[in-house]
Amino acid sequence: MQKKISKLPFKGTPEQAAALQKVIDANKHDSSRLMGVMHEAQNIYGYLPIEVQQVIADGMGVPLEKVYGVATFYAQFSLSPKGEYNISVCLGTACYVKGSGDLMDKLKELLGIDAEECTADGRFSLTACRCIGACGLAPVLTVNDDVYGRLTTDDIPGILAKYGK
């Protein structure tokens, strides 16, 4: 699957911009440090929208397409912001055979977004993850640091309600 590009407006702060600039200034003499800079940028912003990639490209002296190519090649980079609550559904084998795919579908339906997207109000984002080592509880999902296990689709509205949905 191609990486999803968020359509949500960019909400970077001057503090974030200053932090990114500092990272770039420390690395711009060596374009082979591109990936490291992208990593730091993602830590600062939570994701890598065009506004951020453009600053990185200009700062590091590489074409924007090169930054984008790297961002879409490595799974660790995201083009979509994380919500206040990031819901991560395990699609590892154990969870999947116990129906985590259905959990994912239910979440998509209730939140009105696709996997790897964020709701327009910035509150919820949805991601798929590989095995988190809680197979005994399959199927499992996490909301930020909270873990929920042995779920059915009927449990989903209640979980969302806990976080104000």
Binding site: M1, Q2, K3, I5, I50, Q53, P63, L64, E65, K66, V67, Y68, G69, T72, F73
Partner: peptide, 16 residues
């Protein structure tokens, strides 16, 4: 350049 990876690799511009 080349965007995405594996079977999805394709030649295109930044941010498609």
């Amino acid at each position: 350049g080349a965007n995405d990876r594996g079977i999805d690799t394709h030649i295109a511009c930044a941010f498609e």
